[in-house]
Design a protein around this nucleic acid. Structure first.
Length: 485
RNA sequence: GGCGGCGUCGCCAAGUGGUAAGGCAGAGGACUGCAAAUCCUUUAUCGGCGGUUCAAAUCCGCCCGCCGCCUCCA
């Protein structure tokens, strides 16, 4: 398995420090507002990476943080008229809810800055005693000049950067690139520290928490590409200066951002798509599928139009699985085993290999999904071929195919279930459909096509589509048809 | 100005040296009472120019266009 490592700029063979175990830390978000499609894109990318690592047999320990205290949270709390910690609680819960609705598995642990102040203080104290940090007016700064490797992740050189060219340099800093480990702050919420009341700087939290929850050196550290500098660069500096252990992180993974019509989506531009709103109109499968048909490192130029387009592609997979279920579930014991297509087993096996090869190559979900489409086509051909007969052998083969299909879907976190909104009592509903289909069958047998077509057309209007197949009529709920206008 | 990325069929998108995956949309055909679904067939030489090579979308150089980071950001 190969993984693209930001720090080397290359795909590297993936080897964990402890055989069979992966220590993975992903930067979460500052819980100051609802999550948007960009946040969730990362969450889905890392969710799939985690699922795939587990599929490969790794035991994955996955930690994600919440930044629950900083200037922005305080500001937002004022706007919403609540206490900062209350606001953080509100939006972290909202985020967790978004993740659940998107079928994103929960991390093994969510860690919060506010709960780890002790560890942060301990690290800062050590950094000061080692000469990597200094205190000034109640603030503590990390000295970038004290750390020779500074810039190794983002490929920057301290001297060449125009620090302060766009932002005023804090006069307490010895070097313009120095960054805060501890910030002096008077009003609540604050924590006591050897340097007075205040709170941690932004970058130190991830160093502290990844070390505390996962141990010294970790295998995978993920986040958006917009975190490479300065956040992750600073994390490396702090962590390695603190522990003396290198590397702090073995593989740095960065997912691309979600842009809006060529512009980066951001709150300041106001072109944000909130996750909760998207979930009103699209299923978790539709959102995940859309995201996963693009490589995790590529930027996504988001548009509703494209999301709809990719939904049509997703439907194809759902439909295949639906057919598979029907053929298998309707099968009744049968001794007629003369049609056996042994080589279909090989077809299934080769798709398994292809899928894994795609995922082994830096989690190429786009390619993996195309393998799924290939398998879908094979299954459809098999089931719909004129000489297909559901007998013991063929049903056995189809069950294998279904199992593989499901396995792939699970790795991608796709449910591939038909949209049944409004049909909660499905069993009863199915019986009603049977009655309708029978009645229409009879109409057709007697050449009452007008009536038969009326039944079909009327059902279509309420998003139920009938399909006349060689083995009888089936129905499916097509979901709310969305206008493309 | 510095660092990084991108430009592949109408649209989305894989593909990092061996002669262009897949999906959507389109066209033709099979199936159907007609449909739908499904299946089959069909549509590109890879932003431009030059170079390296037996061989390049893939490597190198230059140019054009777009974007991200350098400030909080997933």
């Amino acid at each position: 398995m190969k993984v693209y490592n930001t720090i080397t700029g290359q795909k590297e063979e993936f080897k964990t420090q402890e055989p069979g175990e992966v220590k993975m830390y992903v930067c979460g978000l500052t819980v100051q507002n609802y999550s948007h499609i960009g946040h969730v894109r990362g969450a889905i990318n890392y969710d799939v990476i985690r699922r795939y690592l587990r599929h490969k047999g790794y035991d994955v320990n996955y930690i994600q943080n919440f930044t629950d205290i900083n200037e922005k949270i305080v500001k937002r709390a004022e706007e919403e008229g609540m206490a900062p910690m209350e606001l953080a609680e509100k939006y972290s819960n909202a985020y967790i809810n978004d993740l659940k609705r998107l079928n994103v598995e929960m991390p093994d642990e969510f860690c919060r800055v506010s709960e780890n102040i002790d560890k942060i203080i301990e690290i800062i104290e050590t950094l000061i005693s080692k000469g990597h940090a200094y205190e000034s007016e109640g603030n503590v700064y990390f000295s970038v000049e004290s750390f020779d490797d500074y810039g190794k992740l983002s490929g920057r050189n301290v001297d060449e950067m125009e620090a302060g060219s766009r932002v005023e340099v804090d006069e307490n800093k010895k070097h313009p690139m120095d960054f805060a480990l501890w910030k002096s702050y008077e009003n609540d919420p604050t924590w006591d520290s050897p340097w007075g009341k205040g709170w941690p700087g932004w970058h130190i939290e991830c160093s502290a928490m990844s070390m505390k929850y996962l141990g010294g050196s970790i295998d995978i550290h993920g986040g958006g590409t917009d975190l490479v500098f300065p956040h992750h660069e600073n994390e490396i500096a702090q962590s390695e200066a603190y522990s003396g252990e290198k590397p702090f992180v073995k593989y740095w993974l960065h997912n691309g951002t979600v842009d809006m019509s060529g512009e980066k989506m951001s709150k300041s531009i106001g072109n944000t798509y909130w996750t909760k709103d998207l979930l009103e109109d699209f299923s978790s499968d539709e959102i995940r599928y859309y995201i996963l048909t693009k490589h995790y490192r590529s930027p996504i130029n988001f548009s509703i139009e494209e999301l709809k387009n990719s939904s049509r592609s997703l439907k194809r997979l759902i439909s295949t699985l639906g057919q598979l279920d029907k053929v298998i579930d309707n099968y009744k014991k049968n001794r007629d085993n003369d049609f056996i297509q042994e080589d279909f087993i090989d077809v299934i096996k080769s798709h398994r290999t292809e899928f894994e090869e795609a995922m082994d190559d830096d989690f190429n979900t786009a390619k993996a999904i195309s393998v799924l489409h290939g398998l879908s086509k094979e299954i459809n051909s098999f089931i719909n071929s004129s000489d297909f007969k559901p007998n013991d052998n063929n049903i056995f083969i189809l069950k294998e195919a279904r199992r593989l299909f499901r396995t792939f879907a699970d790795v991608l976190g796709l449910k591939l279930e038909p949209d049944l909104v409004g049909f909660e009592d499905r069993e009863k509903f199915s019986k009603i459909m049977e009655i309708l289909i029978d009645a229409r069958e009879e109409a057709r047998d007697n050449n009452y096509y007008d009536l038969a077509d009326k039944i079909r057309d009327d059902l279509d209007k309420i998003n139920i589509r009938l399909k006349d197949t060689p083995r009888g009529t089936t129905w499916e709920y097509t979901g709310d048809e969305r206008d493309d206008s």
